[in-house]
């Protein structure tokens, strides 16, 4: 059974599912209770579950994240909302120094079953300080799991998996897509981490992305198809753990790859993808792996500049044409 739901509804459904199933699950965040959440993700939950399960917290990211780490260490399963991931810089010390390392420090005796979630990425004119894609930032640290679902079904299924995971999970939501709809499986549709999704099958070039850029790649694939090139689109979904096999198998079939990311080019996920491909599928490559990334500038506010600073469909199709040794358009 599947029903059409928005990304927001699917996300809420997963948290409700776990609130109902597991008493140790609590939601924490700024304005998530009485106000219903800045992005209305938790709208209505306060009335249903009360202030002990749906906790409004002060504007103090380091403080409430630290509290959540402690709660998780004591056996609770807190799901912390960052109003946007941009604010997590304030909590980075708790996330990186404690959440990611306590299990290691304690020789495995103390787990930190913590989920930190919130909208990631830009594209909605929030300017430089509110425009970050933090997957490579958090993906860099051992001890953290990092996921970035793009479909309503995946956001639900991966939130279920995240809450059940005994380790801290950085849950990067496609903030610009909260209102987008898609079919969502009923009930427990837990999606495992470390397994990419083939969003579109193709034989000529592999486009690899995650989060919002997956949709960009799907549009680019349609455009390429008009020219007779069938692109395979891979949605990574999970960045740590990372599904190398799906990429390698695809490139072994297509012989060409383009990695797309919203974040800046340097030290990004796309670079990691390119490295993995050259490492494991070198003899299948017909062209160097292309990377399409955001422009190397702080996120601009002006709409025209913002559009230019983000990967465009044209950039993706042209990168694909380059690896196909075709004329750019």
């Amino acid at each position: 059974m599947a029903e059409t739901k928005t990304y927001r509804e699917a996300l809420r459904e997963a948290m409700v599912h776990e609130l109902d199933n597991d008493e140790s699950v609590v939601l924490m965040g700024e304005d998530i209770g009485v106000y219903g959440g800045t992005h209305l993700i938790t709208d209505g939950l306060y009335d249903e579950y009360g202030p002990n399960r749906i906790m409004d917290v002060p504007i103090s990211e380091n403080g409430f994240t630290g509290a959540a780490v402690g709660m998780a260490m004591m056996g609770m399963r807190p799901v912390v909302e960052m109003m946007t991931w941009n604010f997590s810089f304030l909590a980075a010390d708790q996330i990186i120094q404690n959440a990611a390392k306590v299990r290691y420090f304690s020789g495995g005796q103390v787990e930190v079953p913590l989920v930190i979630r919130g909208p990631n990425g830009g594209g909605v004119q929030l300017s430089a300080q509110h425009t970050h894609s933090l997957e490579s930032f958090y993906g860099h640290f051992p001890g953290l799991k990092v996921v970035a679902p793009v479909t309503p079904n995946d956001v639900k299924g991966m939130m279920l998996t995240a809450i059940r995971d005994p380790n801290p999970v950085i849950f990067l939501e496609a903030g610009a897509l909260y209102g987008t709809k898609g079919e969502v499986e009923e009930g427990d549709n837990a999606v495992p981490f470390g397994k990419a999704r083939v969003a579109r099958e193709g034989s000529d070039v592999t486009l690899i992305a995650y989060g919002r850029q997956v949709n960009l790649c799907l549009r680019a694939a349609d455009t390429l198809s008009e020219d007779g090139f069938e692109a395979e689109v891979i949605d990574l979904r999970s960045l740590r753990p990372f599904d190398e096999d799906t990429i390698v198998e695809s490139v072994e079939k297509t012989h060409r790859a383009v990695a797309v990311q919203e974040q800046w080019r340097w030290f990004g996920v796309a670079s990691e993808v390119a490295a993995i491909i050259q490492d494991r599928a070198f003899d299948s490559l017909d062209a160097p792996v292309e990377r399409v990334s955001g422009a190397e500038v702080p996120g601009p506010y002006a709409r025209n500049l913002e559009l230019m600073a983000f990967p465009s469909e044209k950039q993706v199709t042209n990168a694909a044409r380059r690896v196909l040794y075709e004329e750019e358009k």
Binding site: H255, F282, D283, S284, L285, D286, A287
Partner: peptide, 15 residues
């Protein structure tokens, strides 16, 4: 591609 006797060829081509 072959001026010095070495060919420029993509890995899949060599394979």
């Amino acid at each position: 591609g072959r001026a010095d006797g070495h060919f420029r060829a993509s890995p899949i081509v060599r394979r």
